[in-house]
Design a protein around this nucleic acid. Structure first.
Lengths: 139, 139
DNA sequence: CATAACCACTTAGCAACGCTAAGTATTCCC
DNA sequence: GGGAATACTTAGCGTTGCTAAGTGGTTATG
């Protein structure tokens, strides 16, 4: 398989999988972007808006809108930065933490159900692929 | 790494990579969905609307709108099925074929530039990951 | 220290794309 | 022939990308 074919197939496979995963979202659940942002803040936060937008690979205005939804839902706090009045610091609220913990299992269940049936070798491949994907994302 | 962590990380990596790839799209190029649909028809077509929508993991109305854009751009032909008047058959036009061939290299260039620098082992992982992703997508 | 340049966030408005619900045309089946 | 099922289309909504432009805080400079 050539690099060109690999690139092409990988890009399309990634896109289709994203659409497939979207199909599994329950109606009352957070959207993919919202859940991703909340997860980033939960595991690696707190962040300023710009920092979060760079993590999530969207522009600050796009990030701002997603954050607005999370703040309105009471899952995230937006507080002014102490040392720089221009910045805002985003932290996950207690409700947000609870929501994150409760939702994760259910939310990842569709994938987990399938991954648990994989061979150890397949799981190893997947784990390494995640690292490659992160590397690509941050390059 | 547990299955739960693997699932979670993989889902988020998939979403973020999709956003990262979107950032690389040039203004005059086909969108990700359009390019994916055109590619499916090019390599595996012709298909009816429903068949294509199942391939692309979207609903028929969503697919229809994307196909409309491709038809309007002259890249795809929508013709009535001979054996069943309800169905339409979607085929790639000659312009569409040329466009596909010309665009592919440029479009996949961003990924290919990076993949070409990978070790053979990393490329092997990627190729296997693609198979796993397809399996997940179709399950 | 006044002012310009810069930076961070926000607001406003556009386009792409998912979806569901409902409409039309065709085919299938009794 | 007539009702149910199927395939596509239309209409309309919500989310999520984007760019351009506005607001206010900080930094650098004469």
């Amino acid at each position: 398989m050539t690099v060109a074919e690999l690139s092409h197939d990988f890009r399309l496979a990634n896109g289709r999988l994203a659409r497939r995963l979207r199909q599994e979202k329950a109606d009352n659940e957070l959207s993919g972007s919202q859940f991703s942002a909340l997860g980033t803040l939960f595991f690696y936060g707190p962040f300023t808006l710009r920092e979060l937008s760079e993590h999530e690979k969207v522009t600050p205005p796009s990030m701002n809108r997603t954050v607005n939804a999370l703040v309105q839902a009471g899952l995230v706090n937006r507080t002014a930065s102490a040392d720089d009045g221009r910045k805002v610091v985003l932290t996950v609220t207690e409700i947000g933490r609870t929501m994150m913990r409760d939702t994760r299992k259910r939310r990842d269940a569709w994938l987990a159900q399938r991954i648990v049936k994989f061979t150890p070798e397949q799981r190893r491949v997947l784990a390494e692929a995640i690292e490659i994907m992160k590397e690509l994302t941050d390059s």
